[in-house]
């Protein structure tokens, strides 16, 4: 995967109390994040890559959090899930753009 890939990837999450820790963790772990609020949901968009880290969520939530729980928060996404394990979920695009 090209390091220069900047096509935006995004996740849309339900904006509620349950998800606040997840949203804050994403904000902390991703530079250049664009946040957009529409009624009921929040859209988090990042250039090229977006990561959700279990430790960051747990720190804010004050309890253990399995990455599987992300399924409860997510409304939609843009990009490929290129990694999903116990510790983190990564979204990015799979192939570099051709010139």
């Amino acid at each position: 995967m090209a390091m220069t890939e900047t096509r935006p990837v995004s996740v849309d999450l339900q904006e509620n109390e349950e998800n606040r820790a997840v949203i804050e963790a994403i904000e902390a772990d991703n530079e250049d994040l664009t946040i957009r609020h529409v009624p009921g949901l929040v859209k988090l968009q990042a250039p090229g890559r977006l990561v959700i880290k279990r430790e960051s969520v747990e720190e804010r939530l004050g309890r253990t959090w399995e990455t599987h729980e992300f399924q409860m928060a997510i409304v939609t996404l843009s990009g490929h899930i290129t990694e999903w394990d116990e510790d983190q979920i990564v979204l990015s695009w799979g192939h570099p753009e051709r010139d």
Partner: peptide, 11 residues
Amino acid sequence: FSAQSDESRHM
């Protein structure tokens, strides 16, 4: 939104 959370898996 509940249905849509499944939708991300369907996507």
